[in-house]
Design a protein around this nucleic acid. Structure first.
Lengths: 250, 250
DNA sequence: CGTTGCTTTGAACTAGCTCAAGACCTGTGG
DNA sequence: CCACAGGTCTTGAGCTAGTTCAAAGCAACG
């Protein structure tokens, strides 16, 4: 009945078929909510955790830092995401999970999830699918990191984020809040902060989007999409919602 | 009883606990083997497939190509790998799977896998875990793509490959066969072919490794590992085999 | 023994980096 | 209400890692 689980159900309904049994199993999960301030590390690289963490509001990120201090952010997570679902089957974290903005999360003990999965094979398949979509997003991102220059890379990033924010019901008038600094943006894109700034100015100059005061505005979706060669099909949203045949209408 | 399934069992035993029931379920899978020549595309980007593909010998790769023709290779796969296991739960491929060398593969119909998974929850968890390790390798790779320069990036790549080849029993005297061109290497590392060549010369010059005539030779493992900041723990091999506490002994 | 595919080299060019300073903004304490 | 401090954004300028283009060397193969 908690609002928190509704976010998750929303998202799962967008990526697959949710049975009544699944719904029931999820609603019965014992969760414990908490507020976190920006910068809090939830699970550290190398650690073992005994619960999963679901986002209720705000943004979490997964990242890893090299010895020289350079950090790569792998993914951002909004309402309904469970960024460390993989910890169910991989004991040791190979990266860290932290709050990139003030946010509210819900903790679900592994034990409870195991029980739900055992009792409900369709939920098992659905959550497996969820982790596979996560993996697909990594591939899309690797393609941009390895092969695209800063401008298309950034364009692609905002396309993905907008699509996912829209799915989570966080957009309004082609606009959504994004509590990131340009330094964070650089760590996502694999470029320096200075270059992130210049790349952003380039996108602004083209009139395709803006990002100011923590607000992203999509101004010309089709052009932005073309620029970033963004094809949302890797997010595997069901037809009828945002998908390849039906890209986010503006 | 087929040799093909043994490769898979080998690998699964290295990443988790395999029960007798799992073993039985796997051995009962109907498989159809085939030989492929280098370059054959097994599943195309955007396609839907109704079977999984297991590597028996040789190398497969997963990759995606941008409009301008630039290609990013996401991963390489050897004996025992099932690179498209995700197709069980994601119908449409978001990248393509192809033979990067002459190789032998075994096809397993989805239907048969579904049945095995339904009948055997522990196998289900084990294969889920396998796809999660796949995902962990992507993260490790994204870190290098986004934050490391060509030399450490290449060092890291050869470290991962050597570790996995060792696990699959393909190494001999710190040496293993790798049927790649330098152009392929560039597509993996996200650098041009010319730069791949120069980076390789750099590694050779440092005396840490060599790659010539399709043979990789690891000359100074510890230095190579340090250079690439390689920590094999993301591959999640069980203790007692190659792992963080027990890195590939040379 | 010529063709084909792979590797190697040189040389000019460029995307993105680093360093450093200034502008701007917001919250805090006097 | 002002001053100051700390974080963020913006700009300039010189530098470097990696790119592209083009040609030459090399090996295998029919």
């Amino acid at each position: 009945m908690t609002k928190a689980i509704d976010h998750l159900l929303n998202r799962l309904e967008a990526i697959g078929h949710v049975t009544d049994e699944d719904r029931k199993a999820l609603r019965n999960l014992p969760i414990k909510e908490a507020n976190l301030v920006k910068g809090t590390e939830i699970v550290a690289d190398g650690e073992t955790s005994s619960s999963c963490c679901m986002v209720v509001s705000g943004y979490l990120c997964r990242s890893k830092t090299l010895l020289d201090g350079s950090r790569q952010i792998f993914s951002l997570h909004t309402a309904g995401d469970i960024p460390d679902l993989h910890s169910l089957h991989l004991n040791r974290m190979d990266h860290s999970l932290s709050a990139i903005s003030d946010c509210r999360i819900a903790r679900i003990p592994h034990e409870a999830v195991y029980n739900a999965l055992d009792a409900c094979p369709s939920l098992n398949a659905l959550l497996w699918r969820d982790t596979l979509i996560d993996s697909a997003a990594f591939r899309a991102w690797m393609l941009m990191l390895g092969q695209a220059e800063a401008v298309p890379r950034m364009a692609h990033f905002f396309c993905e984020l907008f699509t996912r924010a829209a799915m989570a019901g966080l957009t309004e008038n082609n606009t959504f809040p994004l509590p990131l600094t340009q330094a964070d943006l650089g760590d996502i894109l694999g470029i320096s902060m200075v270059h992130a700034n210049r790349t952003l100015q380039d996108l602004r100059g083209r009139g395709v989007m803006d990002f100011d005061q923590q607000i992203v505005s999509i101004l010309r979706w089709d052009d932005l999409r073309k620029l970033g060669q963004f094809d949302p099909s890797y997010l595997h949203y069901l037809d009828g919602r945002i998908g390849r045949e039906n890209p986010a209408k503006l």
